[in-house]
Deep mutational scan, measured.
Amino acid sequence: KCPLCELMFPPNYDQSKFEEHVESHW
């Protein structure tokens, strides 16, 4: 789950994509 927007991600979600998403909040 994204700590900034509460959006849920699947357990096998690509880590780099997840980090990209988190950085999109900044």
Rank of each mutant, 00 (worst) to 15 (best):
S16R: 08
E23W: 03
Q15S: 08
P3N: 08
D14F: 01
V22Y: 05
H25W: 00
E6F: 07
V22W: 04
P10A: 02
V22I: 06
D14K: 07
S16V: 11
P11Q: 07
P3L: 04
E20G: 08
E20M: 11
N12D: 14
F9S: 06
H25V: 00
D14R: 03
C5N: 03
W26G: 15
E20P: 05
V22M: 12
M8A: 14
H25Q: 01
H21A: 00
H25T: 03
L4H: 15
E23G: 05
V22K: 15
D14E: 08
F9Y: 10
E23P: 02
S16K: 14
Y13P: 08
E19S: 13
W26H: 14
N12M: 03
K17L: 09
W26F: 12
D14H: 09
P10S: 07
H21D: 00
H25P: 01
C2W: 01
N12Y: 03
E23S: 06
P3K: 08
L4I: 13
P11T: 14
C2N: 08
S24C: 06
S24T: 07
E23Y: 03
F18L: 08
E6Y: 06
P3T: 15
E19C: 03
S16N: 13
C5P: 03
D14N: 13
H21L: 00
Q15V: 10
D14I: 08
P3A: 13
S24P: 03
L4K: 15
F18I: 12
E19I: 10
Y13H: 12
P3H: 15
E23I: 04
E6Q: 09
V22E: 07
C5M: 04
Y13E: 08
F9P: 02
E19H: 10
N12K: 13
W26V: 15
F18R: 13
P10N: 05
K1C: 09
L7Y: 06
E19F: 07
L7W: 08
H21I: 00
E19Q: 11
E23C: 04
E19V: 07
S16G: 10
M8Q: 06
F18K: 10
E6T: 05
P3G: 11
N12I: 06
P3Y: 05
V22N: 07
M8I: 12
S24I: 06
H21K: 01
W26T: 15
H21S: 00
N12R: 09
H21E: 00
L4R: 14
P11R: 06
L7H: 13
C5T: 05
H21Y: 00
N12Q: 08
K17T: 13
K1L: 10
K1N: 13
P10T: 07
K1H: 07
C2M: 02
C2L: 03
Y13I: 15
W26N: 15
H21R: 00
H25Y: 01
Q15W: 03
C5K: 02
E20I: 01
K17P: 01
P3M: 14
Y13L: 08
P10W: 00
E23K: 14
E19N: 14
C2F: 02
W26R: 15
H21Q: 00
P3F: 14
N12F: 04
E19Y: 04
C5L: 02
D14Y: 05
H25D: 03
N12G: 11
E6I: 01
F9V: 11
Y13T: 14
E20D: 15
L4P: 02
Y13N: 12
D14V: 11
E19M: 02
P11V: 05
M8D: 15
H21F: 00
H25I: 01
E19T: 11
M8K: 10
F18V: 09
H25F: 00
E6A: 11
F18S: 12
M8Y: 07
S16I: 06
D14G: 05
S24M: 07
